[in-house]
Nucleic acid binder design. Structure first.
Lengths: 248, 248
DNA sequence: GGTTATTGTTGATATAAATCAACGACAGCT
DNA sequence: AGCTGTCGTTGATTTATATCAACAATAACC
């Protein structure tokens, strides 16, 4: 381990943190070569945040940027009278906080217990300029986020309540357990957020979300274990619903 | 002009095109240094497109990318039954076509007569890797697009028809004529798109858009010259409307 | 320059989802 | 274990906007 001698014990711990990071390959961090991991580790600090922690406050100076390594973060924008739109949920592997302005134009709050690696602006800028692959990876992620935002605009502007809920469940569906079976049966959907959050994400009220989920349950399209975990019984049916090919 | 000898006449014309390009500084192209303009010029071709031209077809291979140098392009997503959501209007200076997938996830069509510089994928990728400033500028633009998309999600998910139309007019308002007057009087809004496009952008029907604009005219918030050019009489009032501080 | 198509406006009615209201099911706390 | 507050469900009613329908204004075209 020749690296060991070059860093303080603290830095070594950090390096180890990045070395063993299971989500590295699924995040912007895979833009940094293994041999340079120490630089990455020194540029960020890992934090554990309890549910409901405000990570980013709309309108405050944009000094921190985050990579989510565990849990789910909600991103949102608000109107003066309190109406709120959740613009996305950042799950494991997602990077958040980017802006070209001096201040954040959106808020971010933890949904459940969340682990993040926090980058401060100067360190992030160094990474961006020194590691082209890191910047490229970030460009790709923002490009993906934009495509997702466009899909959500289609949902918010043109889909019915049923179509919105179906789309939401479909998007949050876990990849089916990698057994020998086909994709048509029993996929799990984890819903760490509350009904209020789902409603604010889908541009609906909590009552409409609740009623719609109940209806899907009644029709055997889904099955409700508890409120934060749903099982999809008919994936294809849900897919049809989501894109407006509603049979009934 | 020592450069002249290094390029074919055609390339020289292209170089001139970039040299005199008035919008260069307001687009991703300002990521390329003046001395390297020839490279930029050779990587792109300028096209003039009549109104209603389909530039990008949803689901087709993503081979071309565009920088708008004149006119307005609409970007949209559609549902199988024809419902459509316009996700944004790309005006002069905007770059469009980016995706991490093999195919476009959205469509693009000219609103009026449009001039674009078209980049093919290999050339664009070369620019991205060879000119870090170009890539940085693109990252900034996509980041801005994402912020705009989030603002539009707030509009689509949580604003009333009045608030949506007010927001739209406000966003498309020209900077007030740079005379000595204050910002409170008579700004112009250019609306090259049809009512159908406005409705598909705001998640409303054409009837609701029409009625709402008529109402704003009746209340003297705006004044209608013709259908594609509106003058805002009370900017502050419009601003209040857009953010939900509605007096009536 | 008058005819035809397209685009925009206004009115009457229908409807999907919001609002108002009550209650049920948990989770946290002492 | 029993209380208390949060979160979710279900029902009754209202409402903003969609839909249906007719017409007006503008642009396109022989």
């Amino acid at each position: 381990m020749p690296l060991r001698r070059r860093f303080t014990p603290e830095a070594r711990t950090d390096l180890h943190r990045c070395l063993v990071c299971e989500i590295r390959e699924h995040s912007v961090c895979n833009g940094i070569d293994d041999s340079e991991l120490a630089i990455l580790a020194q540029a960020s600090k890992r934090l554990t945040l309890p549910p409901g922690t405000a990570m980013i406050e709309e309108g405050t100076p944009a000094l921190s940027f985050f990579n989510v390594t565990a849990g789910t973060v909600k991103l949102f924008k608000s109107l003066p009278d309190g109406r709120r739109q959740i613009t996305g949920f950042a799950d494991v592997g997602h990077f958040l906080g980017l802006t070209t302005a001096k201040t954040y134009s959106f808020g971010a709050e933890t949904v459940d217990t969340v682990q993040v690696c926090r980058f401060l602006r100067p360190q992030l800028e160094t990474l961006l300029t020194d590691y082209p692959q890191f910047e490229r990876r970030l460009l790709d992620e923002v490009t993906d986020d934009l495509a997702e935002a466009q899909e959500q605009m289609l949902l918010l502007g043109r889909k019915t309540a049923r179509e919105r809920v179906a789309s939401f469940l479909l998007n949050r569906m876990m990849p089916p357990a990698p057994s020998g079976q086909t994709k048509t049966e029993g996929c799990l959907v984890s819903l760490p957020m509350t009904r209020v959050d789902i409603a604010d994400y889908l541009g609906l009220t909590i009552e409409t979300v609740s009623r719609t989920i109940s209806a899907l349950r009644r029709e055997q399209t889904i099955t409700g274990t508890d409120n934060h975990g749903i099982r999809v019984l008919a994936v294809n049916r849900l897919r049809d619903l989501a894109s407006g090919q509603d049979s009934r």
